[in-house]
Each structure stands twice: as C-alpha cells, then as structure tokens.
C-alpha cells in the first residue's frame, strides 16, 4: 500500500474517535437534527463528485460523473436546508417572538 493510504488510515482512526466523542453526550432532543446535520456533512461527497467528473475522459464516465454531481449537490443542499429548518425552531429568541414564553 502506498504511503498516502497509510496516512489516510491514521487520519481516519483519529476522525472516528473525534466523531464518537463529539456526539457522545447529545440530548435525545437533538437526535433528529444531528442525524440530519451529519447527513449534510457527508455531502462533502460533492467535492469528490466534482473531481470525478472533472477528470472524466469518456462519455460513459462523464454521464456517471454528472449523476454523481447531481446527487451530491442534492445531498449537500437538501441536508443543509432541512437541518437549518429544524434548528431554527430551537432558536430561543425566535421562539419568544412566536408567542412562546
């Protein structure tokens, strides 16, 4: 295996522990927005899709690459908007304006 892959593997291990620690003590109330928020974060796949399409050389690759970009863009925008809509409701200042306590 190339040196880059070993580096990536080490990084992945650290990232896994980070993901675990960051979520560790989340209240149930935030499970839904958090699932939606992490759904948004793997929208980084769009970056990979752009690269894949950007270096495509045959028409078949371009077609599949285009599908990847469309899907990745849906993931990232949809994931963001849904999460933002959910979390906007938890905004205390806004809640007061809406007639809350």
């Amino acid at each position: 295996m190339a040196a880059d892959l070993w580096t990536a593997l080490l990084i992945a291990i650290l990232a896994a522990f980070t993901g675990y620690e960051v979520i560790g003590r989340v209240p149930v109330l935030l499970h839904t927005p958090l699932m939606s928020g992490s759904n948004f974060i793997h929208g980084i796949v769009l970056v990979g899709a752009i690269v894949a399409l950007g270096f495509s050389t045959t028409n078949l690759e371009r077609a599949i690459g285009l599908v990847a970009v469309i899907m990745g863009a849906m993931n990232v925008t949809g994931g963001y908007v849904v999460t933002e809509r959910i979390l906007a409701m938890f905004d205390r200042s806004k809640q007061r304006k809406g007639g809350g306590p």
Binding site: A12, A16, T18, G19, Y20, I41
Partner: peptide
C-alpha cells in the same frame, strides 16, 4: 475525514 466523522457519529 468528513466521511469517517459521520460514519462514527
């Protein structure tokens, strides 16, 4: 990094 973060979380 982003993928593993989401995978773990």
């Amino acid at each position: 990094i982003a993928g593993t973060l989401v995978g773990a979380a």
